[in-house]
Nucleic acid binder design. Structure first.
Lengths: 342, 342
DNA sequence: CTGTTAGCGCATTCAT
DNA sequence: ATGAATGCGCTAACAG
């Protein structure tokens, strides 16, 4: 069923039917009523492509997801997308996921723009100097960045205080008396990863503790990495008495390795994990309950969707940015170091 | 830059340029070369909406994701989407995710069809009698079902042998000497959940073991549910000496509860989990390594994308369906029951 | 091999 | 308050 047919059925012009359906004020209420009823009855719904072609606006936002590295389409991504979806569905905005196999991200973004398939985009996982952001900002294409990057051109972004999170966590461990603290975080090059390491380093340096490169790991967020690297840590002399884990997945592996060694969490070895708040993996329910730096990635998604809508409503990008604080939540996996019984 | 402008630049007609770009055979190779080079130079890329309007084909497939239940947009979904993406990106097919807040799924599907935004759809999480499937099959709209349902109208689908998986797992535990076996699986009503329970029941019945409704749980897949329900199990007399977990998330919670009670996995209480194969959560790396029924949900996604492409190429839906076997992989979390030391 | 012409289905001027 | 006419940018018959 198309507009023309619907109009014929009703004995009205396409124009009037179109106006009635799109809520234009100059339509007689009775007519509108009649039109709406008929549309419902015939299951009419405008051809989105024709509509977009005519209006020049799409009603969809784009997101480019590299799919070969599990790092980028794992549980974090799905939680984030859920958050986005929650807000966007209210305005009936779809999102278009463009999978990316090779590494030519820039051209994927460019194609998405020039083919006019989306009104705006969301960019995730920025590096310190991110060429995607530079390009989009330069092109003045509306987008919101999840994370931060050092690009001068004004753009909208939302980030959490990753540096503060690891600074807080490290400082807390130092307060408890730990001298040897390790960290396992995400891949090097990403801003969040660099920021976290900065926080960690600052806290140590502030107390005059030298930094041991053997205690710093950057890799994917997974149970396996957590396990393997913790085993390595525990074979060192002296070994760390506390470990920061960049994700809950990592933390699971770290925990296993600690237990496998016969140590107790929060005793011989403490652990603080960054918790992005997964509904299916709850830090407070673990045994022992896990001390975490917490910030909901899902909420971030929702908020970013909100920012996107503001951007599309014409708000200038330079006024749209936020840094979210991260809470340190003390539970039982962190405590003063206990000397292992020989 | 639009087609017209590009054509003017080249001193050619729009038609020729269009044909050159779209790989039509009747174009002079030299001309094609020239056109392609110019397109690249000017960053031209066709307006997707105009293109779709003219062609009547979209180059995108749709997927409706209910977002309020974490059950439906969790790690399983993201792995599945990754798999889809892997195959679809080869044909430059995007996917459109339509978030769904209220429960009116049917009308969301109908709108997606009549607005011509997608060429085909993927339907997940069917119930035994699924009205979405009935509607789509009736409307002869191309779609592939992930899972199975009892609908007569021919349609394409891919499912794993859920019944066989739980049958195998249960039988194995019975072979080991277990008499009291519990299961924690997904929400009731979904086909996969029902099939699994069937497999479980069949195995027990076959050995003349009566079924205790207290030993059967249907709920979301999460660490928390696994933990809570296992605590409940272990407070029963007699309590189960083996537990089937419907997901790895559930299994994490089950494991914790077993350990919290002072039992060892594979000794006092055995566990077999269904493993959808998450890259960040590896059953063989757990301590003890986890016995699983394994079937990669990501591969299923890739295969379903493949089926979708065949469907769009005109293959009739009734010839497109597969049941994948599920492997039982024995590791250390399952063993003969050990009587707890008092 | 290339160009001319006519839609694809809708939103939107400009009339009335 | 309603209708007729125009164009969004592209593809595909139809001609040559």
């Amino acid at each position: 069923m198309k507009l023309k047919e619907l109009a014929e059925q009703l004995g009205l012009s396409q124009t009037t039917v179109s106006r009635a359906l799109n809520g234009y004020p100059e339509v007689n209420e009775a007519t509108r009523e009649r039109v709406n009823k008929a549309a419902l009855k015939f299951g009419y719904s405008a051809n989105a492509n024709a509509r977009r072609l005519a209006m020049g606006r799409v009603g969809a936002i784009g997101i480019v997801v590299p799919i070969h590295s599990s790092e980028r389409f794992g549980p974090h991504t799905s939680e984030f997308l859920s958050g986005l979806a929650e807000r966007l569905s209210r305005d009936e905005i779809d999102f278009l996921i463009t999978p990316l196999i090779n590494n030519d991200e820039i051209s994927a973004y460019k194609r998405l723009i020039s083919s006019k398939r989306v009104d705006a985009m969301i960019v995730s996982h920025p590096s310190l100097v991110d060429e995607r952001v530079a390009m989009l900002a330069e092109a003045q294409f509306p987008f919101v960045l999840h994370g931060r990057t050092n690009i001068d051109t004004p753009h909208a972004w939302l980030d959490i205080d990753n540096k503060g999170a690891f600074y807080q966590a490290t400082s807390h461990l130092l307060d408890l008396g730990h001298k040897h603290i390790a960290m396992i975080d995400g891949l090097k090059g990403f801003t969040f990863s660099e920021h976290r390491e900065e926080g960690y380093r600052d806290a140590l340096t502030e107390r005059g503790i030298s930094i041991d490169p053997n205690f710093i790991v950057h890799d994917c967020f997974s149970d396996e990495i957590g396990f393997r690297e913790t085993q390595r840590f525990l074979s060192l002399k002296p070994h760390p008495t506390a470990i920061l884990a960049g994700s809950m997945m990592t933390a699971l592996g770290v925990s296993r390795a600690i237990r496998a060694k016969g140590y107790q969490l929060g005793k011989e070895v403490s652990i603080i994990a960054h918790d992005d708040v997964f509904p299916y993996l709850n830090a407070s329910n673990m045994v022992p309950a896990m001390t975490t730096t917490r910030s909901s990635i899902r909420s971030a998604g929702t908020r970013i969707a909100e920012m996107l809508v503001r951007l599309l409503d014409g708000e200038p990008p330079e006024t749209i940015h936020e840094v979210w604080p991260v809470e340190l939540i003390l539970r039982q996996s962190s405590g003063p170091p206990v000397i292992p019984a020989k």
